[in-house]
Amino acid sequence: MIKKKRWLTFMLAMVPGLGHMYLGFKKLGLQFMIGAFVCIIFIPSMPTVFPFALAALWFYQLFDALQKATWMKISIAEHERLMFHPDSFGAPWTFDMHSLPGFPQDDVDPAWVGGACVVAGVLLLIITAFPTLWSILTEINIGTILLSVGLIGYGLRMLKNNTRA
């Protein structure tokens, strides 16, 4: 089992997604990279929305990578304690961190990624192919409207999925 260094995770996480890739969360790291790239691409078109989104994405991925690195260090220490401590009879000789409860899973729904790609593609198409339509949309603050609708939709989805009996 390869021990990952937290300081190296922190340094690599300065580039969105790179810290996650170092830890073995390749899909999640790629999603963070794509998200940062999309935010950078759209900054000139909506300078009031996308710098904020990029900053939020950057801070989230940085702290998430550090949390995952800390969890991995704690789980490795627990594994070594189970393997080599004299009181740990019947210790497991194989260790798969991904099957343990509480392990930070790399489970981002592909439907969210696909939906984000469709929305980004439509916005990019409108910006490049229909510049007059884009100027009209920016006058009515379409970025703020889309962000508001997205937040409301995500909040409703979370409320629906988190109903308690």
Rank of each mutant, 00 (worst) to 15 (best):
A116G: 15
I40A: 15
W134Y: 08
P92R: 09
V119Q: 05
A65M: 02
F10Q: 11
L66C: 08
C39L: 06
K160I: 11
W58N: 02
Q61G: 03
R164W: 10
R6G: 12
M33N: 12
M21L: 10
L18A: 14
K27A: 03
S75V: 07
I126E: 04
T128I: 13
S135D: 13
L146S: 05
P47Y: 00
P86L: 08
M46Q: 01
L12Q: 07
K3I: 06
Q105I: 07
I136G: 08
E139M: 06
F37P: 00
I2F: 08
V38I: 11
F42V: 03
L133W: 15
A111Y: 06
I76N: 04
I41M: 10
G24Y: 08
T163K: 15
T9Q: 07
L8M: 12
E80A: 12
S45Q: 12
L100M: 14
P104Y: 07
G102S: 02
S88D: 04
W58F: 11
V119K: 06
T9K: 02
L100I: 11
W93V: 15
K4F: 03
G115Q: 02
Q61W: 00
V113E: 00
V15T: 11
V113I: 10
P16N: 01
I136C: 10
K160P: 03
I2M: 11
G150L: 10
E139R: 09
K4T: 03
M46P: 05
T128P: 02
A116F: 10
M158Y: 15
M46T: 02
L57G: 00
G17S: 03
A55S: 04
I126F: 14
K68S: 12
K26S: 04
V113N: 11
L125S: 15
L159Q: 12
H85G: 14
I140E: 11
W134L: 05
V49W: 02
A65K: 09
C39D: 10
M158D: 04
Q31H: 07
R157F: 04
F25P: 00
L133K: 02
A129D: 08
K27E: 09
F63W: 04
I142G: 00
G143I: 02
Q105D: 10
G24T: 07
E80Q: 15
M158I: 13
I136F: 13
E80N: 15
T144E: 06
L125E: 11
L18Q: 12
S99F: 09
